[in-house]
């Protein structure tokens, strides 16, 4: 009975949010259609032509393949950023030398506009890995900083408990350190992934080697207006879906412990 109530507390707000998103999409579409009908400009195509372009490109064209390439890049980058962000975030928070040296370095280099490093990363990592490199770099910071801050605010009492139980560092890591940083980590990841989809567009349109970003860029050069919007919608939808999934997991976890 309790678990059903708890589930409802997670599912109902999620359904509500999805409802709001649908309403917002309908409003935007209606407004867009009105603008398209009144302005009659080629760069404001009708909703119908954008959606049919999206459907055709996904079912028969190259857009699905491009989406797979983009997703592979984004997910690989997030994985790399997650591993490096958690490891370096924990070292910065929990190792004395890490706190003194690594923490200020991470915090000081966070505001650097990392997108500007794409040309340099191209020289160092080559065409494909420079894209993954720049996304990883941008996603790394919110994850590392969240890990650092949440690890610092976890009460030491929890680790004392493990120590008195005869637990090793592995037990502290498994039962205290990792579970305690999960809410912060998910918040960082949620923020980071939305940025990741923006950065993947920049990276993919810088040197065109496939991906939704490259598709948008190519469509733009061909004056394929509906194609540009189809690409933008697909990238946005993927970003929103990823954000929502992480938000739901984060919410469910937080409800249990906070």
């Amino acid at each position: 009975m309790v678990s059903v109530k708890e589930d409802n507390k997670v599912i109902l707000p999620a359904l509500k949010s999805i409802g709001y998103i649908i309403i917002a999409l309908m409003l935007v579409s209606t407004l867009w259609e009105l603008i398209a009908l009144t302005t009659v400009k080629p760069y404001v195509p009708r909703v119908e032509s954008i959606l049919s372009k999206l459907y055709i490109e996904l079912s028969q064209g190259r857009l699905l393949e491009d989406l797979m390439i983009t997703m592979r890049r984004v997910l690989l980058s997030i994985l790399l950023a997650l591993i490096s962000g958690v490891v370096l975030g924990l070292i910065s928070a929990r190792v004395s030398l890490g706190y003194k040296i690594l923490r200020p370095v991470i915090l000081a280099t966070y505001p650097i506009p990392h997108v500007t490093l794409i040309p340099i990363l191209l020289w160092i990592l080559g065409v494909e890995y420079s894209k993954i490199g720049v996304i990883s770099l941008i996603v790394f910071y919110p994850i590392a900083i969240s890990t650092m801050e949440w690890s610092l605010r976890t009460p030491r009492d929890y680790e004392y408990l493990i120590e008195t139980m005869g637990g090793s560092f592995y037990h502290k890591l498994r039962y205290v350190i990792i579970p305690s940083i999960i809410p912060g980590l998910l918040t960082g990841l949620r923020i980071a992934t939305s940025t990741a989809y923006a950065v993947v567009f920049i990276a993919e349109s810088f040197v065109l080697t496939g991906g939704v970003g490259a598709y948008i860029e190519e469509s733009w050069h061909r004056l394929d207006y509906a194609g540009v919007y189809a690409g933008v919608i697909l990238l946005s939808a993927t970003g929103i879906a990823t954000y929502t999934i992480i938000w739901l997991i984060e919410n469910a976890y937080r409800r249990r412990i906070e």
């Binding site: 009460p155 009492d157 004392y160 408990l161 008195t164 579970p179």
Partner: peptide, 15 residues
């Protein structure tokens, strides 16, 4: 591991 210690606060792991 031969002592059980219960602090004043944070006596249980919340997760």
């Amino acid at each position: 591991g031969s002592i059980a210690y219960i602090p004043q606060d944070n006596e249980l792991l919340p997760w």
